[in-house]
Every structure is written in C-alpha cells, then in structure tokens.
C-alpha cells in the first residue's frame, strides 16, 4: 500500500484505536447495562483492527480479508445506523455505528466507502507477476 493509501491506513488505524478504547471503557465499567450493544462495540473494534492490518499487508489473501472486513463495517454502519434512527429503543446505548457514526464525525460511514474504492482500484498483481517484479 503506497502513496495516498497510506493516509487511508492511518485514518483506519486511528478509528481502530478509538473503537478499541471506547469498547474497553464500556466493557470495563458498564458491560451489564447493555451486553448486546457493548459486545457489538467490541466486535466492531476487532474488525477495524483486522481491516487496518489487512490494508497494510500485501498479497491476495490479505486483499480478500480487507474486502471482507470493510464490507462488514459498511453493512454494520448501514444496518445499525438505520435501525438506531428508525427504532432507537433497540440501541439505547451508543455504539460506534449508532446514527451512522454520528459520535465519530461520520468517519465510520465514509471510511468503508473510501476503503472499497481503494481496493477496487488497487487489485493485487497476479502471483507470477509479483514474482517477476521481485
């Protein structure tokens, strides 16, 4: 991952840090209040970390992992974000995806779109060409 993609990785890293931090605080101090929401927070945090790593690493395997995790995030922010507006009683406690990432400057909504655009325009080179290049 080169060039401006580095900035994408950096923003992913910061979001992963934010999600892990918030999830840690929620689980350490008030997990009993909303186990579902906070478990979801923790899952989202782990997925952000994996996505960050997958964007940094090269190769077809990591490329697939990056697609999976970023698509999962996008689905998460759309589904949870939508439900939290239509049916707020389902998510009385904030998650990273509530109201489309409102608490995180909407970064969770924008980032997966940029990530998928990046992946679509930067396919990994086939194995034999990779060997040639090396």
């Amino acid at each position: 991952m080169r060039g401006i993609g580095r900035v994408l990785v950096a923003v992913y890293g910061v979001l992963a840090l934010a999600a892990v931090g918030r999830s840690f605080v929620q689980i350490a101090s008030k997990f009993d209040e909303a186990p579902l929401a906070y478990a979801l927070s923790a899952l989202a945090a782990v997925v952000y970390v994996v996505a960050t790593v997958a964007l940094i690493r090269s190769g077809r395997g990591w490329y697939r992992v990056a697609w999976l995790t970023i698509a999962f995030e996008f689905a998460g922010v759309i589904v949870v974000g939508g439900l939290s507006i239509v049916e707020p009683s389902l998510f009385p406690h904030d998650t990273v995806w509530s109201r489309f990432g409102h608490g995180y400057l909407f970064i969770p909504l924008v980032l997966p779109v940029l990530g998928m655009w990046w992946l679509a325009t930067h396919r990994p080179v086939p194995a034999e060409r990779e060997a040639d290049a090396a």
Binding site: I4, R6, V7, V11, V14
Partner: peptide, 14 residues
C-alpha cells in the same frame, strides 16, 4: 521509515 509526502499528511492526521 517512509519518506514521502503522504507521511507528512499522516503526521497531520495524527
């Protein structure tokens, strides 16, 4: 580690 303009942008993001 990587001396490119984008590393400077990353410093700004941080």
């Amino acid at each position: 580690l990587e001396r490119s303009r984008w590393s400077t942008v990353v410093l700004g993001v941080a």
